[in-house]
């Protein structure tokens, strides 16, 4: 959906832009602007601190990095004290929260979360998904969660379940 893979058939349209028609740098840029992505496993630029990692979207897309907003975001996510630590020094849960902060920092219109809770225990799952929902609501971004985690399914009214057959809306 965010243009990492090209559709074999049909079209993908996001915010009125047919992204299946975009290519290369334009697609990278569109994706960067419109989407915040939380991956199943958190990836960071290992040589940079958490704070510097948060600054990357603004650097890549242009625009001034809102330092105070980044601090606030990290504070809301409970990892303000790790702002200047290297990503490697964070626990899995903290890394996941840091990647949520990074997905939101540039105010994307859509946040994509790919199995955000698969590596987490019940308590952390509740905390992370809660934060994800709160932060998206605050930023006014749509949240799309891809998961096979039973713990999450009941939380959402809009679900697309992919079965080996055809997708069914429920």
């Amino acid at each position: 959906m965010c243009g990492l893979l090209h559709p074999q058939q049909g079209e993908v349209e996001v915010q009125g832009q047919k992204i299946s028609a975009l290519n290369g740098p334009a697609l990278d840029r569109f994706r960067g602007e419109q989407f915040g992505i939380v991956f199943q496993q958190s990836h960071f630029i290992q040589s940079l601190s958490v704070m510097e990692n948060l600054a990357i979207p603004h650097f890549l897309l242009g625009g001034k990095f809102p330092t105070s907003k980044a601090k606030e975001l990290l504070g809301n996510l409970g990892i303000a004290h790790k702002a200047h630590a290297k990503p490697r020094a964070l626990s899995v849960g903290e890394q996941q929260r840091a990647s949520i902060a990074r997905a939101l920092i540039h105010q994307p219109s859509i946040v994509l979360a790919d199995e955000p809770t698969s590596a987490l225990d019940d308590a952390s799952t509740a905390a992370v998904i809660g934060l994800l929902e709160d932060q998206c609501a605050e930023a006014g971004a749509a949240l799309i969660v891809v998961t096979h985690d039973q713990r999450l399914k009941t939380r959402y009214s809009n679900r697309v379940e992919l079965n080996p057959g055809t997708p069914q809306a429920s």
Binding site: P25, D28, R29, R31, G32, F35, I37, P57, L60, L61
Partner: peptide
């Protein structure tokens, strides 16, 4: 070693040229 990082940069809006 940093293939993930480079892919990450791409998802965040860096073109291949970056």
């Amino acid at each position: 070693a940093r293939k993930y990082e480079l892919a990450l940069l791409r998802t965040m809006g860096s073109g291949p040229s970056g």
